[in-house]
Amino acid sequence: MARTQTVSTAELKTIARRIRRHIIVMTSAANSGHPGGSLSSVEIMAALYFRLMRHDPQNPLWPDRDRFVMSKGHASPLMYATLAEAGYFPVEELKTFRQLGSRLQGHNIMHNPPGVEMSAGALGMGLSFSLGQALAARLDGRDSHVYCLIGDGDSQEGQTWEAALSCAHHKVDNLTVIMDRNHIQNDGFSDYARFNAAAAGDGQPPDRPGGWVLPDGHTANIMALDPLDEKWRAFGWKVWGLADGHDPDAITGALEEARAHKGQPAIVICETVKGKGVSFMENNPDFHGKAASPEEEQQALRELGDE
């Protein structure tokens, strides 16, 4: 049975706020984890799980369900918070994140908890797995759509491009990639798009190719991806670009069009802000893989507002 839900924009924003609060609380309680890249995909996940996907939290292995494959497996706080809000398991369990005995490990583990479709944590593997799922659905005549969330780091792995080539070659149109493009990764800035030279205190980018290690230890221009839309088009994909990857209605609209598009795979490239919603985390590489301190946690929750 399909569980497509219709929720208003206001409701979706409320859900997104709750998910953000979970992400902050979970990572702070664990004193580790990846809040930055979790916060950047919140509206994408809310739109998927509360508007677009056909899924059943009471029957997570329903064969005809749509699949969501999180390739950027370090965004596990977002995965778990979304599943809990969607009703896959009690919200209470989020407190156990990263603790011994918990189902909620630091990176995603397939079917543990139910609703997690794939193990991840090594980047670049999600799209291949999604293609396998899409081919199986087509072979079995199941009307099941596969959504795959990738990030900047995923897009630097060779396997992602092997898979991109392969998806177009096999003309899978029951597969949509969503790219959370926040331009920030573990060591710093993927390119110069979100890089603030003045803040880095080191003047202008150097006139030479390659990365630039800044005085604060971050790196700028780690591996630039532009022109990214042209790359995907050249690989045979239908491409949508969203200037605001935090606008739930724009995401919903683009993903509906992508799902309806036939004859080739589709990607929606969403420009997002790493750490979105928490002032001191926004565009700050430090919070790629670091939790807020107790004081920072309180400030973050004040900024996000009540549940």
């Binding site: 293609l131 396998g132 799922q133 081919l135 080539l165 392969s166």
Partner: peptide, 28 residues
């Protein structure tokens, strides 16, 4: 033929695609 998927010279992708097929119930 419908159960045979060529992915080209791309072994990493081959394993990932097989895992996806297997997760959907196939013997891959």
């Amino acid at each position: 033929p419908e159960r045979f998927f060529a992915v080209g010279v791309a072994e990493q992708n081959m394993i990932g695609v097989a895992a996806g097929l297997a997760a959907a119930g196939k013997i891959a």
